[in-house]
């Protein structure tokens, strides 16, 4: 057994819930607002995302431009709304992909054990040695810039985490007397694995995957910040910061700070939701 299992076991160790119900509600509302903003960006954005306003370059917030404009005079609010699309969609795909693949492989490894478990464990060990951002950068080096290769690479990078967690939970469930009781009652392995064990571990895995969403969001934005992900002029939070970087030394902070704050708010909201879910679920599953 290598280290990440332990790390994850520790990460989901019982902790006092420090998030109040109102905080949780606010987090859900914020995330919902961001999602709606992204989906309906064309309808609600005051300007097209790449329309320059040469009279208002690096403008401060004003009635015309609520959040101000960037170095090319583009409206920051509009770019923020459009940018939410790539910023949120990428992590969503990664979380769905890695959770689906990871849970299946984890169930397979944990339930069947033996050589399948050993072989999958070795594969996970190798993948763990590739931090997700590194794998994403490598994918860009191979297949070129953009979001597609990194999203696939990160799904692969996160799947072992989900798989490890699922595997260890399944292994623990498997030794529980209730599983033996199903066997003695004559139920088949497939029924027990899919109808009983899998539903019992899903909530914990799901909550953990929610927490992954925040990390992936930050990492994909970071990739665009490095200029390796979403390419300008497509609006994306990371890419916006990248473009705005040159202006910082000149004292034009706003074009960088606005998307940066958006990233932080999104990640905080997702993490609060994930933590709260873990806390609620953690109580139901004896460790």
């Amino acid at each position: 057994m290598t280290t990440p299992t332990l790390a994850m076991r520790v990460l989901r160790a019982p902790r006092a819930s420090f998030i109040g119900r109102p905080t949780f509600t606010v987090a859900v509302l914020v995330l919902a607002a961001m999602t709606l903003g992204a989906v309906f960006a064309p309808a609600i954005a005051p300007y097209p995302p790449d329309a320059p306003d040469f009279l208002a370059v690096n403008a401060p917030p004003s009635p015309a431009h609520w959040l101000g404009t960037d170095g090319l005079g583009r409206d920051l609010l509009s770019r923020l709304l459009y940018g939410a699309r790539t910023a949120l969609l990428g992590p969503l795909l990664v979380v769905i992909g890695s959770t689906a693949v990871g849970m299946l492989l984890g169930l397979l490894a944990g339930w069947r054990g033996g050589w399948i478990d050993a072989a999958l464990g070795r594969v996970f060990d190798v993948l763990f040695a590739f931090p997700s951002l590194l794998l994403a950068i490598m994918a860009v080096a191979l297949f070129g810039k953009g979001l597609v290769a990194p999203v696939i690479a990160m799904s692969i990078a996160y799947a072992p985490f989900v798989a490890r967690l699922t595997r260890s939970l399944v292994k623990a469930e498997r030794t529980r007397p209730y599983v033996a009781a199903y066997r003695v009652a004559g139920f088949g392995g497939a029924f027990i694995a899919f109808r009983s064990v899998l539903p019992n571990v899903t909530p914990i895995v799901g909550a953990q995957s929610t927490l992954n969403f925040g990390y992936v969001l930050a990492e994909l934005a970071g990739l665009s910040f490095l200029g390796l992900g979403v390419q300008p002029p497509t609006p994306d939070w990371g890419a916006m910061i990248n473009e705005a970087q040159a202006g910082i030394v000149g004292g034009h902070f706003l074009p960088a700070i606005v998307p940066a704050v958006a990233v932080v708010i999104a990640v905080v909201a997702v993490n609060i939701i994930g933590e709260e879910l873990s806390d609620r679920i953690g109580g139901g599953a004896p460790a």
């Binding site: 529980r176 007397p177 209730y178 009781a181 009983s196």
Partner: peptide, 9 residues
């Protein structure tokens, strides 16, 4: 163990 021998769900 009566606490573990029934499926919690």
């Amino acid at each position: 163990d009566p606490y573990l021998s029934l499926d919690p769900r």
